[in-house]
Design a protein around this nucleic acid. Structure first.
Lengths: 158, 158
DNA sequence: ATTTTATTTGCGAATGATTACCATTCGCAA
DNA sequence: TTGCGAATGGTAATCATTCGCAAATAAAAT
C-alpha cells in the first residue's frame, strides 16, 4: 500500500492519470534499475497475475516519454527502443559490445561542445545522445580464450 | 576522368568484388554527399535504367558496412538505418530537430573521455556514437512566427 | 451508490523496415 | 565459350511497433 502510494503520487505529479497498468509499469521500471525494452517490461508483468498487455505497454511507454517520466532510447543493436526512468541521472553509458552490460558514465564532455556549437552555428541546442562502446574486462578474457580464427573481418557487425 | 574506374578501384581496395550494382550504389552514395537510407538509394537507382533491387541494396549496404566502406547509423527518428561513405570525415552531426538538416561536427570531445574511461574501467573501447540535437536558425524563426498554442508541455524532449 | 462521460485497455489485424529464401543470372578464371 | 561459386531479384517471412474498435474502467456528476 505504501509503495503504491508514492507510485501514484509520481504519476499524478507528471500529469498522468492513475490506472492499474500504469502503476504496474512504473513499479517494474523502478524495480529494474536499468533501461528496459517494451517486451522486457511485458515479460516482467507476466511474472505475476494481471498481465499488462503488450500494446498497452507500448502506449504507456509512449505516454511516459511524452510526459518526461522516462527517456526513450535505442538498444545497442539499434533494433528496438529501450526506456529508463528520467530520474535516473546518467544519460550516457559505456556498453559492452559483447555481453551488453551497461555502465553509467557520469562525466559528460558534450556540454562544453554544445556551447561552442551554439556560438558557431546559431543553433538552439536542445540535447544530445552519447554512448560509448567497448569490451568489458570479463568479455576480453573470454574472447582471448575462444579466439583462434579471426584474421580477416570475422568479427562481423552483427 | 573515368569516374567508373576509380569506383571500381575503391571497391577492390576494400576487398569487395565489382558488380554493376555495387558500383552503382557506390556512385549514388558518393554523389549524394550526405547519408542516405536504403530506400533513398533504391529510389535514386530508379531514376535511371537498371534499377538495383531493394533487397540487393540492403545486402550491399550491409556488405559495405562490414568492409568498412560505409558507416551505418540510424536516422533521427530512429526508425531506419542510414549510411554514409566512411571516407567522409565527420562521424557526428548537429541535427535540426525540426527540419532534420544535418551539419557535420568536426570537433569530437569524446576521444579524451574514451581514454579516461578505459583507464577507469578496464574496458577496451571500440567506438562511440554522438549526435547533438537543436533547432537551426531558420527553424527558430519559423517557430517564432507560428507559435501561439504552446502553453502546455508541447516542446517535449523528443 | 448509481449513472454519465471520457479514457484506457486488450486483442487481433495492419504496417513498415529488414531479413530469409530460392530460382535465375552474372563475374571471372580456365 | 564454359563452368561454378557468388550475386541478384522478387517475394515471402519476421519482428517491432502501431491501429482500430469493442469491452472495461476511472473520475465526475447525479
Amino acid at each position: 500500500m505504501n509503495v503504491e502510494k508514492s507510485t501514484e503520487t509520481k504519476l499524478t505529479s507528471f500529469g498522468i492519470k492513475n490506472t492499474f497498468q500504469r502503476k504496474r509499469v512504473l513499479e517494474i521500471l523502478a524495480g529494474a534499475g536499468q533501461p528496459l525494452t517494451v517486451d522486457e517490461i511485458y515479460l516482467r508483468s507476466k511474472q505475476e497475475a494481471d498481465v499488462v498487455s503488450l500494446s498497452t505497454v507500448y502506449r504507456i511507454m509512449e505516454l511516459f516519454a511524452a510526459k518526461g517520466l522516462v527517456l526513450k532510447n535505442i538498444t545497442f543493436d539499434e533494433k528496438k527502443y529501450i526506456y529508463e526512468l528520467a530520474a535516473t541521472r546518467h544519460k550516457h553509458y559505456l556498453i559492452c559490445a559483447s555481453c551488453k552490460k551497461k555502465l553509467g558514465i557520469d562525466d559528460c564532455p558534450v556540454e562544453q561542445l554544445e556551447r561552442t556549437l551554439a556560438g558557431q552555428t546559431g543553433y538552439k541546442i536542445v540535447g544530445h545522445k552519447l554512448d560509448v562502446y567497448g569490451y568489458c574486462p570479463a568479455c576480453q578474457q573470454a574472447m582471448a580464450k575462444t579466439e583462434g580464427a579471426d584474421s580477416d573481418g570475422a568479427a562481423k557487425t552483427k
